[in-house]
Amino acid sequence: MSPITPVLKREFLGYFRSPVAYVFLVVFLAASVGLAFFVGRFFDNGQASLESYFVFHPWLFLFLIPAVGMRLWSEEKRTGTVELLFTLPVTTLQAVLAKFFAAWIFLGIAILLGVVPMAATVGYLGDPDWGVMISSTLGSLLMAGAYLGVCSLMSSLTKNQVISFVLGVIACLVLLFLGWSVFNDVLYAAFPVWLADLLANFSFASHFDAFTRGIIDPKDVVYFLSVAGFSLFLNVLALER
C-alpha cells in the first residue's frame, strides 16, 4: 500500500482539527445559498430547478477555493513541516496527490452539503429535472478540482499564504474570464480568431455551462481533469526545484 493514504487522511482530518473546516463550511453554505436566494431570485423564478444555485458557483469558487488551496503547501513551507514530509518515504507526486485529494474530498463534502438540501427543497416543492441537477453537481465537483489544482500550484510557489491566496485568485480569475463575453471581445480584437478561439476554450465558465444544462460532454470532463492534472504536474516540478 502506498503512503498516499496516511498523508491524505492526516491532511483531511487536519481541516477538522482546526476551525478552518467549520468556518469554510459555514461561509460556503451561507454564500452559495444566499446568492441563490437573494441575487438569483431562487423562489421568485417559480421554477423547480437549481439553475439559480449553480450559476454562481464559478464566482463563488473564485474566492473560496483559493482560501482552501492557499494553505496546502505554503503552510508546510512556513512551519518547516515540508522538511518532515519529504524525509518520510513519500515521493513528491504521492504527497501532491494526497494533499490534493484530501482538499478535493473536503470541497466535495461542502458542495454536497449545499446541493442536497437545496435539491430536497426543490423536489418537495415541485417536479425538478433530476438529471440536470446531477450533471450540474458533477460539473461543480469537477470545476472545483480544476480550481483547486491551480491553487495548489500557486501555494507551492510561496511560503506566504496571503501571496498564495492572491496568486490563486488571479490565476483562477484569468481562467474564468477567458470565456466571459466582454473579455472575449477584447480577445478577438487583440488576437487572430484561431488563437482567440483557443484561449476562450480554456475558460472554466464555458465548460461548466454545459453541465448546468444537463449535458455531460466528455470534452468538458477531460478539460477540467486536465487543468487539474497539468497544474499538479507543475506543482510537482515546483516542489522538486
Binding site: 503512503p3 498523508v7 492526516r10 482539527r17 522538511e83 518532515l84 518520510l88 518515504p89 513519500v90
Partner: peptide
C-alpha cells in the same frame, strides 16, 4: 531518521496522533 532544525511538527495534532501518522506513513 531525521530531526530537522527546531523540530517541525503538525501542531494541531496530539503527540500520539502525530507519531501514529509518522508510523503509518513509514509503512
Amino acid at each position: 531518521g531525521y530531526l530537522p532544525e527546531s523540530a517541525p511538527a503538525y501542531g494541531e495534532m496530539t503527540v500520539a496522533e502525530f507519531l501514529a501518522f509518522i508510523a503509518e506513513t513509514r509503512g
